[in-house]
Amino acid sequence: MTMKLAKAFSLIALMLISLTTLSGCEREEGPMEEMGENMDEAATDFGNAVEDTCEDAKEGAGAKDTDC
């Protein structure tokens, strides 16, 4: 029983070391991933611009709560 347990622990340790080593590898971003990141950034910038415009409009109208 002890030998089986030692083999099981050795196998688990080997798997964990392998996973840790593989997760440390850095891969290059492809053009599609870069395009996706650019789209995310553009969407965030657009949302911020809409929110700023809304807050400016509320402020110009004299609203007490200028959060949008």
Rank of each mutant, 00 (worst) to 15 (best):
M1V: 13
T2D: 13
M3H: 15
A8Y: 05
F9Y: 06
S10P: 00
L11H: 09
I12S: 06
A13F: 01
L14E: 00
M15W: 01
L16S: 04
L16H: 01
I17W: 01
S18W: 02
T20Q: 04
T21R: 01
L22D: 05
C25A: 12
E26H: 13
R27A: 13
R27F: 11
R27L: 13
R27H: 14
E28D: 15
G30I: 05
P31T: 04
P31H: 06
E34S: 08
M35L: 09
M35I: 10
G36W: 10
E37K: 09
E37A: 12
E37I: 07
E37H: 11
E37M: 11
N38P: 02
N38K: 13
M39Q: 15
D40Y: 07
E41V: 08
D45R: 02
F46C: 13
G47Q: 08
A49E: 11
V50N: 12
V50L: 10
E51F: 09
E51D: 15
E51Q: 12
E51G: 04
C54S: 11
C54F: 07
E55P: 00
D56Y: 03
G60V: 05
A61W: 03
G62V: 00
G62S: 01
A63M: 04
K64E: 10
D65L: 02
C68G: 02
